[in-house]
Design a protein around this nucleic acid. Structure first.
Lengths: 203, 203
DNA sequence: GGAAGAAGTGAAGCATCATTCAGAGCTTCC
DNA sequence: GGAAGCTCTGAATGATGCTTCACTTCTTCC
């Protein structure tokens, strides 16, 4: 007998999938990719290990989805800040600050997205998303050059440097992770980024 | 019956161990940590898998030795260049260039040392060696500030940025890996590094 | 030359996980 | 209410790859 899923059932499945991805993301942020076994993730989502395969064909596919959702959001936020109205140099400063601040607010996830050991499928995805971060920074740097605010340079290298610098700071944050030093860190990081792009020092 | 190894025998063992580490390093540079199984490494060294355990208590111990030998050499070379005679800014430029050039000349190994997915023991070692690179850069930046050649800044952040930037460039080299573009890349990278530290632009 | 002890071998042992599957429990539709 | 089809379960399966170990080969010493 032919049989169709009701909309409610479809919604339930979709919700279960979202819930699985969300919990998997938490697990990855807490314990890293290596420790995020199918069993651990399923337990966190409150389902059996086998049920993971109702939603994803493999562990790698789930891992990639976790990575894409989290990274996609970061790329969007960074893009919005960098493409806002105004002076390219100011936008760059705000972009670096936003990117770094968000990463520092969720270090576990940021580390997982940017640097933590991961299976090859996630590694490939990471490469692709890093290029997107870099492309966004590069675009803003080129606008700064076009506006005569930045000296001639290869914007792609400056962009890579910015991405790498923020990553480094996250991997081993300088100083203790309290409020005060985080703010000081951001100030230094933004200043470094502006020097790096060759912006004239603030008066 | 008590029995001592002859000096010749001791030398043979030491040589065998060195040979194993050297071949393992090659394997890692070629195929990465993940694919460098005990069997693959033993095959490359021309010994049986079990014989690896004559020299190292575990695969992780061998991996750590491979990492330390290769990274230790890089730290030494960088230290020598950065601590040579002369102007801190010039030394910094030469240090960045040397570090990047050496990495670009052996990309497989550089990638393995700086970024490739690896087991936790190697990851921990990597963190330690990155701090050593950063400490060397930071020292030079502070000397530049003391000499009035660089503006006030947190040298540790600049150092992290330099390490990160070079790492990024290696992970996904901009442009094709031919002679000409490598040289152009180095020029841009050094220029970026000097801006990053706040050195006055060359006339 | 031969006994004693060390190094080398490589196939078996073992641990770890991703993945599967046969059955239990639900949902749909008449 | 009940048949048909779907989701969920979790123990069994299977693959991978480090590590062990009984045995062979080589080295030392008398």
């Amino acid at each position: 007998m032919a049989y169709r899923k009701t909309p409610a059932e479809l919604r339930r499945l979709e919700t279960a999938r979202d819930h699985l991805v969300a919990r998997a993301t938490e697990v990855v942020a807490e314990v890293g990719w290596a420790q995020a076994s199918v069993t651990a993730v399923a337990d966190a989502a409150g389902i059996a290990a086998g049920s993971v395969y109702q939603h994803f064909p493999s562990k790698a596919a789930l891992a990639v989805e976790v990575f894409r959702r989290a990274s996609g959001h970061e790329v969007e936020v960074l893009g919005e800040v960098l493409r806002a109205e105004g002076d390219p140099v100011e936008r760059l400063a705000r972009g670096v600050e936003t990117f770094a601040r968000r990463a520092l607010e969720n270090r576990g996830l940021a580390y997982a997205l940017l640097a933590a050991p991961a299976e090859p499928a996630v590694g490939a995805e990471r490469l692709a998303y890093r290029l997107r971060y870099r492309a966004l920074f590069a675009e803003t740097v080129e606008q700064g050059m076009a506006a005569g605010l930045l000296p001639p340079q290869d914007g792609r290298i400056t962009a890579a440097a910015l991405t790498g610098a923020i990553g480094e700071v996250l991997v081993d944050p300088l100083g203790t992770p309290d409020e005060g030093s985080t703010e000081a860190l951001l100030v230094e990081l933004v200043a470094m980024a502006l020097r790096c792009a060759g912006a004239a020092p603030a008066p």
